[in-house]
Design a protein around this nucleic acid. Structure first.
Lengths: 107, 107
DNA sequence: TTCTTATTTCGCAAAAATACGAAACATAAT
DNA sequence: ATTATGTTTCGTATTTTTGCGAAATAAGAA
């Protein structure tokens, strides 16, 4: 409980991870990361959940900064937020690519 | 709601992501990914949370398969579960490294 | 055997996530 | 002005997560 062990990067990474912590949201991000964009209705046809539920998942991804929506009436086009996606890439990459030492080197 | 849009990989990635969806757990995994192992008590000294709370975070990481503990009385040595960590690396890597096309290619 | 140590489990409470259907919204078409 | 369309917000219920302190546990030391 000393100075500050949990950094802003830890917090940010946790926020991104939490947003990815549901299969539906993983599915959406995967789709968006290959296809650049999509409409809520198209997703709704694929996924076995209510549209209102899907909308909430989109809202979460949006509030985590991973996607953004632009209105194209009567639809809404959802795309990846590239800047933050890059940031997520960096943070996850840093965490996952760190190479654990051979073994048994506890402090 | 057709055949199966959400795959086992989506589920697995979501499970890993969810486990990483808390700053304390990110901190722990970062520590373990550089330092190979640690004891619950050492973490407890660093982190501003009750020991029982820390224990629950460790339990969650364990049940997500990201870490494992071996008893060394009176302590417990926690290490990364390398096999699953590799799996997480693959899954996250695949998702994050996919290159979105230039723009505007909705279906 | 009794004490000590490191950690976990238990019991609880508060907050957040998940999900649904109904209703609301904003615009474009009629 | 009314209707149609795609999506979101609202209200609600259920489940899960987060957090704490107190009690339990398990083994080694005294």
């Amino acid at each position: 409980m000393n100075t500050k062990f949990i950094t802003d990067d830890h917090e940010q990474l946790a926020r991104f991870a939490k947003a990815l912590g549901h299969p539906v949201r993983v599915y959406i991000m995967e789709l968006l990361s290959t296809q650049t964009c999509c409409f809520s209705g198209d997703l709704a046809e694929d996924l076995p959940i209510a549209r209102s539920t899907l909308s909430q998942h989109l809202k979460e991804l949006k509030s985590a900064g991973l996607i953004q929506g632009t209105i194209e009436y009567p639809k809404i086009r959802y795309c990846i937020n590239r800047e933050n996606w890059e940031r997520a890439k960096e943070l996850f990459g840093h965490l996952l690519q760190s190479t654990p030492v051979t073994d048994n080197q506890c402090k």
